[in-house]
Design a protein around this nucleic acid. Structure first.
Lengths: 238, 238
DNA sequence: ATAATAGTGTCTTTTAGACAATATCAC
DNA sequence: GTGATATTGTCTAAAAGACACTATTAT
């Protein structure tokens, strides 16, 4: 049995003979609120981990793709019909003991998006709020969500280095100063404005949006306009 | 139902009421053979996709972590007790239609390791061989394995840029020239030997192993020796 | 000895970073 | 006007890249 191929295994596999396994998607929703990188957490109303905070998520429907489930959850949690941000798959978390009730494998996603107008995300009666990541203590979190959040933040920091996804934290039109503050917030560093400006203008291929906000001129990522409409922007595989 | 929280959902969720979902791990085993980046494929003996080639994989045992399942499969496929290479999680693939029989979510892993002595990996009766990635046609592959392989190669190319995992394609001791050829093979470019040497010596923190191979001196990654023993090297989460 | 690769030296180009100076806007 | 931020300019330091040259080894 241990050295048979997948083909042989599948041919003889009886799904109903195995204990059930659940598949969920969990979302690390990252945004910058008042200059703090923040993540949306939902307070658990029931056991297990009653009273602890969890990242939002839910089961994947039986005929639903993983990305589709993540986008559905995203819409439910942020209450936005049109999501103007970036979402990508973070990874699968499947330690057998991660849920005390039965085996659940979670596919985690991480999303970046602009500061939401309403402080509390849509959703329902359960308490939900954005937490600055610096204020989150591992003991307050349910399941392995501390690990998932840590991985998501690390992913975010890495992605800003070699993509233009920092713009996902901002509205479609933004100033170079706003973009610099995104980097400073996520990376926790100070960046020299003059050098940052030159670097961004030479690598991001921004187009001038015409107007200005405060002191700075407004720019936009050309590609972003194409991603305003469902099925949104995806770089992950289903 | 669509706006209840995960907590509420789980509390009322009856696992047996849903159609079964299978969890597999699939492995993209990458190595360099005769100067070609190659991937291990297994010819499928049964339906579906009978006669097509698939990456090796298998079901995750019910009490087994994802990484553990991947390492078990790795050992079965490569036949090595001690794996001297690098393995990391690639991502989850869960399009509902990806397996025609029933819903299977696959957690894909990608591994880099030195050219194996025996051309055909251990395993069993099924035909298995390493294919140069340039010779792989999408039509010869089963399931969505073409997509998974493409993603794995992209991951490999990206990882060489900002990690030392290129050394995973080589034995513990290697020359700078061998390491350069890894980069040239995976990236499909020519690299200037003099500049490459300086770059690697200034960033990899290699230690001289003492001997020489052919023309070049032998070097080794200091950290690698710690990773010779189970549970091997892991950077992925469970 | 010859050919091929390893390794060193040196120069040029590019990029990153520090910092002064000016411009513009909110108040 | 004052203070803060944006923007441009300029200089220095570091990194990347091109390429000549020497050293070593397999044949």
């Amino acid at each position: 049995m241990s050295d048979q191929t997948e083909a042989e295994f599948l041919a003889t596999y009886d799904p109903t003979a195995y204990p059930p396994t659940g598949i969920t998607v969990d979302l690390v929703l990252l945004t910058i609120i008042d200059g703090n990188l923040s993540v949306l957490l939902v307070k658990r109303a029931g056991h297990p981990y009653k009273g602890k905070w969890a990242i939002p998520g839910g089961f994947v429907e039986h005929d639903e793709g993983l990305d589709d489930a993540a986008l559905r959850e995203l819409q439910e949690e942020t209450g936005t019909e049109l999501f103007s941000g970036h979402i990508e798959q973070l990874g699968a978390y499947g330690k057998p003991s991660r849920d005390p009730r039965f085996r659940i494998v979670s596919i985690a996603y991480v999303a970046f998006f602009p500061e939401p107008g309403n402080p509390i995300a849509g959703s329902d009666a359960a308490e939900a709020r954005y937490w600055p990541v610096d204020m989150i203590d591992r003991d307050m979190l349910a399941f392995d969500h501390g690990t998932i959040i840590d991985d998501a933040i690390e992913r975010a920091r890495a992605k800003l280095e070699y993509t233009t996804h920092a713009t996902a934290f901002l509205p479609y039109e933004f100033t170079i100063g706003q973009l610099r503050r995104v980097y400073e917030t996520v990376w926790g560093v100070d960046i020299e404005p003059a050098n940052f400006r030159r670097k961004v203008l030479s690598t991001f291929r921004l187009e001038e949006a015409g107007g200005s906000l405060g002191l700075g001129r407004l720019y936009a990522l050309p590609a972003l306009t194409e991603n305003l409409y469902p099925p949104f922007y995806r770089e992950t595989t289903q």
